[in-house]
Design a protein around this nucleic acid. Sequence first.
DNA 1: CTGAAAGCGCTTACAG
DNA 2: CTGAAAGCGCTTACAG
Lengths: 356, 356
Amino acid sequence: MERSFRCLPEMNKYTEVKKKGFSSRDVASMAGVSQATVSRVMNRPDCVKEETRIRVMQAMERLHYQPNLIARSLVMNSTRTIGLISGNLTNVFFVETTDSIENYVKGQGYKTIIYFEKEEVKLKDIVDSLISQKVDGILLSSIKLNDPIFEGIKRCGIPYVFFNRRPGEEGNYVVLDNELAGQMATSHLLNLGHERIAYISGKLDISTFHERKIGFEKAMRMAGKRILDGLVHFVNPDEGVIGEITGRLMSLQAPPTAILCATDALALSCMDTLMSHGLDVPGDVSLVGIDDTKLSSHQAIQLTSVGHHGFRMGQLAAGILIDLIESGCRPHQDRQIILPPKLVIRKTSGQIRLKK
Amino acid sequence: MERSFRCLPEMNKYTEVKKKGFSSRDVASMAGVSQATVSRVMNRPDCVKEETRIRVMQAMERLHYQPNLIARSLVMNSTRTIGLISGNLTNVFFVETTDSIENYVKGQGYKTIIYFEKEEVKLKDIVDSLISQKVDGILLSSIKLNDPIFEGIKRCGIPYVFFNRRPGEEGNYVVLDNELAGQMATSHLLNLGHERIAYISGKLDISTFHERKIGFEKAMRMAGKRILDGLVHFVNPDEGVIGEITGRLMSLQAPPTAILCATDALALSCMDTLMSHGLDVPGDVSLVGIDDTKLSSHQAIQLTSVGHHGFRMGQLAAGILIDLIESGCRPHQDRQIILPPKLVIRKTSGQIRLKK
DNA sequence: CTGAAAGCGCTTACAG
DNA sequence: CTGAAAGCGCTTACAG
């Protein structure tokens, strides 16, 4: 558009688009009643005389009338929508939570707007967008430790629940006891005789990874084992560098006899690389994940893992959120659930073997 | 609530809920301008005097103002939202499409409302809900052959694209050449010397399954092989009966030497059962899927499959939808893409072995 | 460059 | 039981 035109009345690109449907006013005039009555037929049918109600309903049918929920939301100040900001679906764990969350909230009569986190998109923008969209509540796994956005969420007063990750000790959340999970996974490997244990994790600005690492360190310390420098890696899981790291680990002079991955998703990538290098798991190296996703129990995978069903975590978080939404008042106490992890020993972890 | 009260003015449960935020009117009065000017600062900043604009923006900051998109949508008649009705995430294929769709439309400035199909929830209700919510377009994989809802979608005039499944020959869609895919998968097994081929599929009221079955039959016919009665099953994939079917197939007097599953998801379930029965794939029985999901290429799975990357299908469909939305006019020709399938031979299919 | 006014499609007190 | 009216928070033609 030319500069000189920029302040002319803008062409309304919607002008020529036909109306998207009929309004309650159209129904009203067809039925010979007021708009208020049409509204009542939808919301409080008991309060409308049967004869009138039938006439209105016939008009609705004839016009294929669909109420405009946007308009309703505006007056009701409620959208019956929750916003879900989730980790990417390339991580199986979030597949489980996304599925269970959508199903749960749908059952409660809510819709779900989803966002999958992405490097380029700032969390703040997503949250702002959700606030602007007037969602009734926000469910988010994508939060960093001490993320300043947490303040913004609290300030605006919109109900929220974190799941899987949390910004700190405060707030509403449902998480795994990650420290314990890390500890249990490590102890399992120690019990099998491993000492040279590699640890592959996501970045430590995320609570999950921060806490699991502490658990790992704690277990090693308690067993009196040293954590070996080149064996510990904190990477960005999205970048697909797991293959490279794994390759490097295994071509070390003294490669690890076991690898603990901070998530099942990482372990799966790791396993993929190990196997494509012709290595046997657990023959050549043991492998353990954390999260215990369903996929890990597949007979072809059989990944030893520690976790607490993801679908349950999603459902719990969604349940709390809806509770928060419907109770209306802002409770004075944060709602916090820390789930106990469970170790599930499968086929990827085995007794250490002596170097041939 | 007592019957006698039912027509009393309803307690407005929103009455006591504090406003969800500030409005442009609040900003206006703080900045000492009219609401119209605040609106202009957001939408056509060039048309506002710099001094005024700065004053308004400061007021916005101070109030942490977030525009109410609900109100804007109402006047603009556009929500910048698309509705996605997807198959369940328990099917890996839909994990890939969901992920790519959300990412693509987000990049185009649209939000995504998702629904995962579910036995209990009727498609019509979901579509109606989406129409009521005034989404700008609908993307759906969940459609049955000749589904009457297709008429409703066309009538209401909302842009739509089907992906993976289609209601028939008509409409906008992006699908795999399913018949060819079925044929290629079958031919592959025939070429390996298999004749006793089992076929496990979803119900035939879904185009994908209908067409893939035709491909299967065609390949068998062209090879002059008979399709054996007890070896063909059309089941509801959600019900987890795959295990049972697989078990029954393999305990037949003359079990199949190969199993073709109509989707990778089915093949994965099938493999799980086969392995848990101690059977070797492909030693005891070959296994082939259709969709070629990423998971199939994992070293621990290595499922032979035929397909066309799911993420591409999702992205193509989303691209067409947004094109349809933004072009505004209803094109006279349907937009249809039929993707060519590719056979990827991995480790689950092998030469037939003679019965010991 | 800016404001007053109308309108998007609903809902709900208020009267009758 | 029903209608007229006001209002939710925006946007935009129309005046000035």
